[in-house]
Amino acid sequence: MNILVCISYVPDTAAKISTIADGSALQLDGVKYILNPYDEFAIEEALRQREKHGGTVVALTVGSESAKEILRTALAMGADRAAIVPSSSLDSFGVAVNIAAYARTMNADLVLMGRQSIDHDSFQMASTVAALLDLPSISVVSKLDISDSTVRAERDIEGGKEILEATLPIVISVQKGINEPRYPKLPDIMKAKSKPIEVVEIQTAPPRVEMFQFSVPQLKRLGKIFGDSDEEIAEFVRLLHEEAKVI
């Protein structure tokens, strides 16, 4: 089975993100980047599917030179090969075009990724890549079984789960809980450092959406904070009932 796992290099969850003074761009200087947390589950799932079905796992990222760091993580965890599309200026659609092109070249049977990148939180990549490849997709998958070319998956929805059936080739985005990602071992981390990383030619795609003004939201709230006396608790409940009208 040819498995492509798509991973992204994103600001740490605790990073402080702001905008430049006139709001025309984001201020990301000094921000620490990490492997997108959901992509760890995607890498692990790729390795587990390879263990079951044989084949090859290729890790791909679209990003700047420093994003090679997460490809080394994927190699240390056990990916066979790694590739980078060296661009940090594509919009989401452009990223999808490049992933789809690579999937086509390697004749991927299974394309895996995390359910969302925690930078833009769009949840769109699996569907977009699949549509470009004219393949089925299933998003936010918490259980995946593949036998022969039949795919059975569970995905999380509001208030429950869906059970879906599909056929290979397919694009799947995974959810936390699908597996327990392994920690790479030190010798494998060392070995991954010297493995080659394929540099893929960028497919240009005109952007389809433009972000043109950025702002930091005012999280300022009413801030009516009380103590824990009976009278104050009563006042807290009264305000929720009569002022906020939410209970």
């Binding site: 989401s92 659609f93 999808a96 939180d121 769009s122 949840f123 769109q124 990549m125 699996a126 569907s127 977009t128 699949a130 549509a131 470009l132 997709s137 299933i138 998003s139 936010v140 995905r155 999380d156 929805i157 509001e158 869906e162 389809r208 959406v209």
Partner: peptide, 23 residues
């Protein structure tokens, strides 16, 4: 933008060559 909507909308966007604006 439900579980169903978030899965469906980007696919339609590709098919009609539309920009997709999520969330």
């Amino acid at each position: 933008g439900t579980a169903q909507g978030k899965e469906l909308a980007p696919r339609i966007a590709v098919l009609v060559e539309a920009g997709y604006m999520p969330d």
